[in-house]
Deep mutational scan, measured.
Amino acid sequence: MASQGTKRSYEQMETDGERQNATEIRASVGKMIDGIGRFYIQMCTELKLSDYEGRLIQNSLTIERMVLSAFDERRNKYLEEHPSAGKDPKKTGGPIYKRVDRKWMRELVLYDKEEIRRIWRQANNGDDATAGLTHMMIWHSNLNDTTYQRTRALVRTGMDPRMCSLMQGSTLPRRSGAAGAAVKGVGTMVMELIRMIKRGINDRNFWRGENGRKTRSAYERMCNILKGKFQTAAQRAMMDQVRESRNPGNAEIEDLIFLARSALILRGSVAHKSCLPACVYGPAVASGYDFEKEGYSLVGIDPFKLLQNSQVYSLIRPNENPAHKSQLVWMACNSAAFEDLRVLSFIRGTKVSPRGKLSTRGVQIASNENMDAMESSTLELRSRYWAIRTRSGGNTNQQRASAGQISVQPAFSVQRNLPFDKPTIMAAFTGNTEGRTSDMRAEIIRMMEGAKPEEMSFQGRGVFELSDERAANPIVPSFDMSNEGSYFFGDNAEEYDN
Rank of each mutant, 00 (worst) to 15 (best):
M13I: 06
E14G: 08
K31E: 08
G35K: 07
I36R: 02
Y40W: 12
T45E: 09
E46N: 03
E53M: 12
E53H: 07
R65C: 07
M66S: 06
A70T: 14
Y78A: 03
L79K: 10
G86D: 06
G93E: 13
V100M: 06
E107L: 10
L110C: 07
E115C: 11
R121M: 04
Q122F: 07
A123Y: 07
D127W: 07
D127C: 00
G132D: 09
L133K: 15
S141M: 15
N142W: 08
N144T: 06
Q149M: 11
D160C: 01
Q168S: 04
S170T: 12
R174V: 10
A182G: 04
G185P: 03
G187L: 04
M191E: 13
R195C: 08
I201L: 05
G209W: 11
E210P: 05
K227W: 11
K227V: 15
T232S: 09
A233L: 04
Q235M: 08
M239R: 13
Q241W: 11
V242N: 09
R246G: 01
N250H: 02
A271C: 07
H272S: 11
C279D: 12
G282E: 06
S287E: 10
D290N: 01
G300A: 04
S314T: 12
E320P: 10
H324G: 05
K325E: 15
K325T: 15
M331Q: 05
N334Y: 03
L341N: 13
T350M: 01
P354F: 10
K357S: 04
S367V: 03
S367F: 08
M374I: 05
E375D: 02
R382F: 06
R382G: 14
S383Q: 03
W386N: 09
A387P: 13
R391L: 05
S392G: 08
Q398V: 15
Q399L: 07
A403G: 02
I406D: 12
K422D: 02
A428P: 01
T430K: 00
T437S: 01
A442G: 03
M447P: 05
M447W: 03
P453Q: 04
E455R: 15
M456L: 13
F464N: 06
E465A: 05
R470Q: 08
R470K: 15
A471W: 10
D480H: 05
F488L: 06
E494H: 14
